[in-house]
Amino acid sequence: MNRVFNSAGLWLPVMLYMFVFCPLNSKAQKTNAEIVLTNRQLIDKPNEFYIANVIDERAERNAVAWLLPAPGNLPAVQYKADLQGGASTAVKQFADYAIPVNKTLRAVNIRIKKLKLNETPMSDGRIAGRLEIQLWFELKKDDGNVHLIDYPASTTYYRSATQQYDTGLLISRTLEAGLQFFNKWINREADTNIKLAKGVKLIFTDYSEQPEGDTIYYSAKRPLTWNDFQDKARGGKYVAEVMPGFGYTEQVEVSKAIVVVRISMKVFLPKSAAWVKPEGRTAFALNHEQRHFDIVKVVARHFKQALIAMKLPVDNYDGYINVQYLDSYREMNLLQEQYDNETNHGTNQYYQQEWNTKIDGWLRQ
């Protein structure tokens, strides 16, 4: 089976964005106080997704910031501060405000891989703060979530030792930048990225080849002739033999969020594997061999009809196609065996005529 893939699914490398913010308005902040995020909606309204869930996967989840107190607040050592309600709850609330929940759109999860703000003293008496963040965006699906893209970023600020920084606003702006980044990415990828596809469409064609070579590809307008039997005759009690089969090739593209699978059906018979004895060149024997070829055409049609009747999953459409191909190939072998057994390899004219009628009916369907 020859299979060709031309997938339009795109993968983007992880990118590191360095943000250098202008100093935020400093304000006093109580030691060990919770950090409150500043809610704000995205300027560009998302129309492809909503945030279904936020999962905190950091190793240390009881704080997001390690800050230094203002002078006079002793001891002058780092203290921990967490987002109000915890990281996953606070980020989910922030995301829901930034992106109103619309469950008719794609459900996306955010996994917090890194969210850490660390302040350290500088030799000139100032305080340096560094925020590092890594968000992991994934498509939520019933049969297993699909990783889409990462958003890593970092920013550094400097402040006076006499006042503390508005860390809530800093983290809010960084989260907002991450959501804006993902919104732009999904808007760009929604129609053509196979990970974001919403369905599968099959388009079938029958393969043909001109000029004809050793292989005959089935056509109702191109019946077998004895000139097609080009292999040396075998011994034994049979007067002729053919070896037909079927396969397919695929070409895949994603268009308007649909995986379009173009399947070119190949019902074939190699001339180099067909043989006939001199005494077997009769119209009756040729019809028997032609019917072997016709049976393969019927089974190939069953293969096509079975796939059309399925609702193929985007994530594993090819697995379903492969399984159906194997099932159809087994059907072909069983039918060929039944045909030869009941017609006694074409020597029983009564049953041969019955099969002729049966196969003609199948071909007309």
Rank of each mutant, 00 (worst) to 15 (best):
I112M: 06
E337V: 11
K92V: 05
D318S: 10
T249A: 13
A197P: 08
V299R: 03
L179E: 05
K103G: 04
L67W: 00
L37Y: 08
Y207H: 15
I51M: 02
N25R: 12
N109G: 10
L16D: 13
Q78K: 13
I55N: 09
Q93P: 01
I258R: 08
I51G: 03
S328W: 01
V252W: 02
Q305W: 08
N344D: 12
V261R: 04
Y157L: 10
A177I: 06
I186T: 07
A28P: 05
G245Y: 02
Q164S: 15
I110Q: 00
R330H: 10
A81V: 03
K266W: 07
K277F: 05
I149Q: 07
L170M: 13
V108S: 03
N193C: 12
Q93S: 15
Y157P: 02
K195P: 04
H302I: 11
Y248L: 01
I110D: 00
L179V: 11
R58Q: 06
E119P: 02
V200N: 06
W275V: 00
L170C: 06
L83C: 12
L10S: 15
A283M: 04
R222Y: 09
K141R: 15
L12N: 12
A59M: 05
R173C: 05
K113E: 15
Y351L: 07
L83P: 04
T167C: 14
L175N: 03
F293I: 10
V267A: 06
W185K: 12
A306C: 02
Q93L: 10
V146W: 01
A65Q: 05
N6F: 08
D214G: 10
R111E: 01
A52S: 12
P152Y: 00
K184G: 15
V252Q: 09
K184R: 15
F19Q: 04
T225Q: 13
L42A: 09
D56G: 02
P71G: 04
L117H: 02
N109R: 09
G319Q: 03
T215C: 11
W11L: 08
A128H: 04
I51T: 01
K237W: 04
A90V: 07
L363N: 08
A309W: 07
